[in-house]
Write a protein that binds this DNA or RNA. Structure first.
Length: 479
DNA sequence: TGCCCCTTACG
DNA sequence: GTAAGGGGC
């Protein structure tokens, strides 16, 4: 025995903060602590990060290293599969325990279980904590014992709970004699875009990291929450919280948001409830992903397997101009040159700022899957690559919601009219003017589809899908 | 977290 | 002519 307490490791993942971090707290309580981040692109089934997310992660890790340095906690950065890297770092550090906050995707849970087993085999402890969700998805069911499929009763049940108060940031540790295993330089992760470096507008729009996230949360609660319910519907106005990437990367925890909201519920009950329910949708999306691990690829409503959505490599269903036309439509949607102003403004905001106003996300998604008849997975993949808040649960969940194929999704007949939506939610045209300088000039393209005709086609496709389903069910019943 | 069209009432 | 409200998609 050396008489000195054993080293602990805190393994950071989607929780890049120092406050309200139960795993960090547990490690520091146990003794000398080393922090670890593993860029894991090797574990089977783990989804590779999109381009905008990689940019965010780079700056988030730089910020985390700074925040941890104030606590005298060194950050080791490694690359590789969690099951090989984490036990290796634990061994090199001579650590007695590794602490982490739980993840909820299936490949991530498998990786974490493997790590725990390997640690145990080497005589070390692996211990996990709840930090990223207000509720554990396996703890909440309907009275029949099934996972919730409808948001309203889910949130009613969940929000009746009182959630734990957030943990304060810990104080600095005594880091004398701490032997730190070798790691990589942050730059060696190669997360930043080069040739070309397209990150300029991202840097202007966002400051990744815990401190920036906490400031935005505080400003939002102080200044903007009161009008949130109305202002959030106006993409030309700074009315949304802009917290989504900070929640995605764990710079802000949902417990911090929940606690920050509490004192404002009396003076702004409606805006508080609306904003709280957005946290609820986040919880619901993770709940769905936990129960349906293939949420990003498989229709939750199986009848949508018969929907004739277009995917690359397929002929155009109506025998029109063929695959090339649909590829061109997809490209126009991606780059914001459809000739539908609100859709184009949204897609250009996404391409430049790595983020899109939520109202516009719904309109643009509806346009892709309904008016253009393109498979929601292509939209989901584009958002995954371009959003700084691209979330493994919320992104596929929201696309399935827009497509109608999800649990508690928008009914099939709900097809947004981008023109009507622009008139209602951007009445002064500020949002359109901000992102489409050439609007109302000959430079701006003509609409790539007729809104009314394509709406009618979408309803026809959905009706045929439902009717052929009813027929199949009848046939199956008879046999 | 919808859109459209019809009816009705009113001037 | 048009605004408001209801029902179907």
């Amino acid at each position: 025995m050396t008489g000195r307490p054993e080293v602990s490791i805190v393994w950071f993942r989607d929780d890049l903060r120092t406050a309200d971090h139960p795993a960090l707290r547990a490690a520091l309580d146990a003794g000398p602590t080393i922090a670890l981040y593993v860029l894991d692109e090797q574990s089977p089934g783990v989804r590779p990060l999109g381009g905008a997310a990689r940019w965010w992660l780079h700056h988030a890790l730089a910020d985390l290293r700074k925040g941890l340095a104030e606590l005298k906690v060194p950050l080791v950065i490694r690359r590789g599969s969690a099951a090989s890297v984490v036990p290796d770092v634990a061994s090199r550090a001579g650590a007695g325990a590794v602490f982490w906050n739980r993840r909820y995707g299936a490949p991530e849970r498998r990786a974490d279980q493997a790590v725990k087993a390997l640690l145990a085999a080497a005589g070390r402890t692996g211990k996990s904590f709840q930090a990223t969700l207000l509720h554990e998805p396996w703890r909440i069911t309907t009275q029949q014992g099934n996972p919730y499929r409808v948001f309203t009763p889910f949130w009613k049940t969940l929000s009746a709970h009182d959630f734990r108060p957030p943990l304060a940031a810990p104080g600095p540790q005594d880091a004398r004699n701490l032997a730190v295993p070798d790691g990589l330089e942050l730059e060696e992760l190669d997360l930043l875009p080069s040739h070309p470096d397209w990150s300029g507008p991202l840097s202007e729009a966002w400051t990744p990291g815990e401190q920036a996230g906490q400031e935005i949360l505080a400003d939002f609660l102080d200044d903007r929450l009161t009008d949130y319910r109305e202002a959030r519907e106006r993409p030309g106005v700074d009315g949304s919280s802009r917290l989504s990437p900070y929640l995605r990367w764990g710079h802000v925890s949902p417990f911090q948001v929940w606690a920050g909201l509490a004192p404002l519920r009396r003076e702004a009950p409606e805006s508080s409830a609306t904003f709280a329910s957005e946290l609820g949708w986040r919880e619901f999306a993770w709940h769905q992903l936990y129960h349906h691990p293939r949420l990003a690829t498989v229709n939750l409503r199986p009848e949508f397997d018969r929907h004739p959505w277009w995917l690359p490599g397929e002929e155009e269903p109506d025998g029109g101009g063929g695959d090339g036309d649909m590829t061109a439509l997809l490209h126009a949607w991606q780059r914001g040159t459809t000739g539908i102003p609100l859709v184009d403004a949204g897609q250009r905001q996404l391409w430049n700022a790595g983020w899109m106003h939520n109202r516009v996300r719904m309109v643009s998604a509806s346009f892709l899957v309904k008016n253009l008849g393109i498979h929601w997975r292509l939209g989901e993949e584009w958002f995954w690559d371009t959003l700084v808040d691209a979330d493994p649960a919320a992104n596929p969940f929201n696309w399935q919601w827009a497509a109608g194929s999800g649990a508690d999704a928008a009914p099939f007949f709900r097809i947004f009219n981008p023109q009507t939506q622009a008139k209602t939610h951007d009445p002064d045209g500020r949002y359109l003017a901000e992102w489409i300088p050439e609007l109302n000039t000959p430079e701006y393209p003509q609409p790539c589809v007729d809104l009314l005709d394509s709406r009618k086609d979408a309803l026809d496709r959905l009706k045929i899908m439902s009717e052929s389903g009813a027929h199949q069910a009848q046939t199956a019943g008879r046999s």
